[in-house]
Amino acid sequence: MINLTINGLPVSVEEGSTLLEAAQFLGFPIPTLCHMEGLTPYGACRLCVVEIGEGKRSKLVTSCTYPAEEGLKVRTASARVVRARKMIIELLLASCPQSKTIQDIAAAHDVRQQRFKQEYEDCILCGLCVRMCEEQMMAKAIGFRGRGEKRSIGTPFDVKSDACRFCGGCMYVCPVVELRCTYNEPEKAICGACANLSPPCLEKEQFDDMMCYMDPCVACEIKTD
């Protein structure tokens, strides 16, 4: 067991736990966006920052990836943390204002406007869908492509991947719902057809061994000529 203090309260957690888990155990709220139980921590959104250490040598780290250390002093809501977090929320809002998840987080942290150039990005590259596809669905149908400005998520060569089983898991976890069900464009489809267990799908035999998280979904009812 590892002993550390969070916001002045002592806590002991198992070796290998993250600061986020330790804080959640004590009930301190830390906002997260790219973190999801059951998926490997990734540290993409930086929303879960906390301050560790003391005085001059204190620093900000992402709690979802930082392992608990013996004797560590953690602050989850110091002035510095709150300032950094608000800045990150503003940046997220600047790139993806239409996301309900991000709007909710902004509202909860009293961020009412952002000061940056407004963009209308579809994806914040949090990597949830990529990890979902690989780790939970064992498919590895989508992944990161390119780098820097050009980094994007999708299937290789932008065509329907053989590895994709149309489970819809990627859309389910997406905080900005970028990967919409694209039944009408079977060629490019990531989720090329809906296979949820609501009646219209069940009657179609090609969806026999699929599972879909989208519910209710009527994409498979959309007529395409």
Binding site: K140, A141, I142, G143, R145, P156, A163
Partner: peptide, 21 residues
């Protein structure tokens, strides 16, 4: 790239990711 994926037993996304990086 598809052939390399087959031969190396890696998934195509990984290879595509490296090739585009």
């Amino acid at each position: 790239l598809r052939e390399v994926a087959e031969q190396t037993g890696r998934s195509l996304v990984d290879i595509y990711g490296v090739a585009t990086f």
